[in-house]
C-alpha cells in the first residue's frame, strides 16, 4: 500500500504546475524564518551580555580617610558575614592611586594630582546582582546618612535597571513580529495548497470515485506543504549563516573579549546557534504540514 514513488512524483508535478505560487511560499517561509531566527539570536545574545554585565555589578563602599583600623576591620567582617556577598576586595588608598594612574596614563590630569586624594574602598560582588539595592541600604542609618566610617556607596543602579527592561522590550517586540510573520506564512502556504487542490480537483474527484482513501488523496498535498516549509527553512538557515560570516570580519575572540561573554550566537560561536538552526528547520517543516493540513480539512472531504 505504501507507494513513495507515486507520492514523490505527484508532489513534484504539482510543484512544477504551481511554480510561481510555490516559489512565493518558499521565499516567504525563508524570509519569515530568517527574521524569527534573527530575533531568537538577538534575544539570546542580549540575554548573554546582560548576564555577563550582571555578574560585573559591584558595590563600591568608599571609606573616610581617617577611619580607624578597628572600624575598617569591623565593617569588613560585617560584609563578609552577609549571605549576599560573593567576593570582597579591599582597595587601599595606594592601590586606588595606582589604578587611577594606570587608567589615565599619559593624561595631563596626573600632573594636577598632588598627594593622594583617592579614598580607600571595599569592592563587593554579589551572588545575586538584583539584590544590590538591599545591600547598599545597609550602609545607611535610619536618618538617611551613611554609617560611621563610610563616605559614599556607589553602584550602577539605573544602568542595571535599564538593561533589565531592554531585554524585556526586545523580547516582547520580537515575539509580536514573529507571530505576525508566522501567521502570514501559514496563510501563504495555505493558499498555495488551496491552489494545488483546485488545479487537481478533477483528479481528486476521480480518486474518490474509484475508492482512494482519504490519506492517499491527502499525502501528496501534505508533502507539498512540508517541502515548501522545509526548503524555506533551509534557505533561512543559509541566510543566517551568511549573516554571521559577514559580521565575523573583525575576529570572534576580540568581540567576545570586549563583550565579556563566552559565546555570541550572532557570530555563530557556541552551541546555541545550532539549536537555533535546528529549531528553525523543525518549525519550517511543521508550519508547512500544518498549513496544508488546514487547507485539506477545508477543501478535501470524502
Amino acid at each position: 500500500m505504501v507507494r513513495p514513488r507515486y507520492f514523490f512524483s505527484e508532489t513534484f508535478t504539482s510543484l512544477k504546475r504551481n511554480f510561481l505560487m510555490g516559489f512565493t511560499a518558499i521565499t516567504t517561509v525563508a524570509i519569515t524564518l530568517f527574521i524569527v531566527g534573527f530575533f531568537a539570536i538577538l534575544v539570546f545574545d542580549i540575554q548573554g551580555i546582560i548576564n555577563s554585565i550582571k555578574g560585573q555589578v559591584e558595590l563600591a563602599v568608599y571609606l573616610e580617610d581617617n577611619i580607624s583600623t578597628e572600624l575598617k576591620e569591623y565593617i569588613e567582617e560585617e560584609i563578609k558575614s552577609w549571605e549576599e556577598t560573593d567576593e570582597l576586595k579591599f582597595i587601599s588608598k595606594e592601590q586606588a592611586l595606582e589604578r587611577f594612574k594606570e587608567q589615565n596614563q599619559g593624561s595631563d590630569i596626573l600632573k594636577e594630582i598632588q598627594g593622594n586624594p583617592l579614598p580607600a574602598s571595599f569592592e563587593i560582588t554579589l551572588k545575586d546582582p538584583e539584590k544590590v539595592d538591599q545591600v547598599a541600604l545597609r550602609f545607611v542609618d535610619k536618618d538617611g546618612n551613611y554609617i560611621e566610617g563610610v563616605d559614599d556607596v556607589i553602584y550602577g543602579r539605573n544602568y542595571v535597571r535599564r538593561l533589565f527592561s531592554i531585554t524585556a522590550i526586545v523580547g516582547t517586540i520580537a515575539i509580536l513580529i514573529i507571530i505576525v510573520l508566522l501567521l502570514a506564512t501559514i496563510v501563504l502556504i495555505f493558499n498555495t495548497i488551496r491552489l494545488s487542490i483546485y488545479a487537481r480537483r478533477k483528479e481528486i474527484e476521480v480518486m474518490k470515485l474509484v475508492g482512494a482513501t482519504n490519506w492517499f488523496v491527502r499525502i501528496p498535498f501534505l508533502f507539498e506543504g512540508f517541502f515548501e516549509g522545509f526548503t524555506g527553512s533551509i534557505l533561512s538557515v543559509i541566510l543566517l549563516y551568511l549573516l554571521s560570516s559577514l559580521l565575523l570580519v573583525k575576529g570572534e575572540s576580540v568581540i567576545l573579549e570586549t563583550m565579556r561573554v563566552k559565546e555570541l550566537a550572532i557570530l555563530g560561536s557556541g552551541n546555541m546557534i545550532f539549536y537555533i538552526y535546528g529549531g528553525i528547520v523543525i518549525l519550517g517543516g511543521f508550519i508547512g504540514l500544518l498549513s496544508s493540513a488546514i487547507a485539506l480539512r477545508r477543501y478535501v472531504k470524502v
Binding site: 483528479e203 480518486m207 474509484v210 475508492g211 492517499f216
Partner: peptide, 21 residues
C-alpha cells in the same frame, strides 16, 4: 466521462488501480 486530460488512455485506466494501491 470525467477523464483526466493530461493522462493517456492507458494512464487514465491505470490511475484507478494506482490510487487503490
Amino acid at each position: 466521462f470525467k477523464l483526466l486530460p493530461n493522462k493517456t488512455v492507458f494512464e487514465n485506466v491505470a490511475f484507478a488501480l494506482e490510487v487503490i494501491g
